[in-house]
Simulated scan of single mutants.
Amino acid sequence: AYQDPGLLRLARPRVALISCGEDNPYGHPAPRTVAALRAGGARVFRTDTDGAVAITGGASGDSAVRAGAGAGAEPALGVVVSGPDP
């Protein structure tokens, strides 16, 4: 799997969403890519391990990431990501 360390450093993602099927025959996501995202400080959510993932945003610029059974109102996991850095 190709990854560009310079791009990850430049983008500095706080959250990464990876859509992949459990036990897929392609080996997605690449462990190296997940490790690079986490090493850069990103919180990684994967549909194969976390279930459905939803991002909601508010007028203040804050976003909430919900993961788990259906990613509905009562998420199994919730993370609030603040608005853009100044």
Rank of each mutant, 00 (worst) to 15 (best):
S19V: 15
A59Q: 11
I55N: 03
G58Q: 06
A30W: 12
R38K: 11
S63D: 04
G58T: 07
P86Y: 05
L17G: 00
G78M: 01
E22L: 13
V44K: 07
P86V: 04
G57A: 06
C20R: 08
G68N: 05
A11C: 05
G68Q: 03
A11L: 14
G58C: 01
G6D: 12
A52P: 05
R9N: 04
A35S: 14
Y2I: 10
G57S: 02
D48M: 09
A64T: 15
D48N: 14
V44I: 11
A71F: 02
G41M: 00
G51T: 11
S19K: 10
R32E: 14
A39L: 02
L7G: 02
G40R: 04
G78K: 11
V44S: 06
A36E: 14
G51S: 14
R43M: 03
D85T: 11
H28A: 15
L37E: 02
G61V: 12
A11K: 11
G70Y: 03
E22Q: 15
G41T: 00
A1P: 12
G27L: 12
D48I: 08
L77Q: 02
G27R: 15
P13C: 09
P75Y: 00
T49D: 10
R66W: 04
G51M: 10
R32Q: 11
G72K: 09
V34M: 09
A67C: 10
V34G: 00
P29M: 12
G70I: 06
L10S: 12
V65P: 01
A71E: 04
P31H: 13
I18M: 14
P13H: 05
P5T: 04
A1E: 14
A64M: 04
Q3G: 14
L77T: 06
L37T: 00
P5E: 09
G6Y: 07
A59C: 01
G83L: 07
P84G: 08
V34W: 07
G21A: 08
A54L: 13
P13V: 01
R9C: 05
R46W: 08
P84H: 09
L37W: 00
L10Y: 08
G83P: 13
P5V: 07
G72Y: 06
S82P: 12
V34Y: 04
A76C: 14
A1V: 13
S60L: 13
R14P: 03
G61R: 15
P5H: 07
A30D: 15
R9L: 04
A35M: 10
A30M: 11
G78R: 15
D62E: 12
G41S: 01
A52V: 03
I18N: 05
S82D: 04
P75K: 01
A59V: 06
R32I: 02
T33M: 06
A39E: 13
V53M: 14
F45A: 03
N24Q: 10
V80D: 06
R14T: 03
S60P: 10
C20S: 12
G72T: 15
R32W: 03
R32F: 05
A36S: 15
A36Y: 06
T47G: 03
L8M: 06
A54H: 10
A69G: 07
S63H: 11
R43D: 08
A16R: 09
Y2M: 10
A69S: 13
E22S: 14
P86W: 05
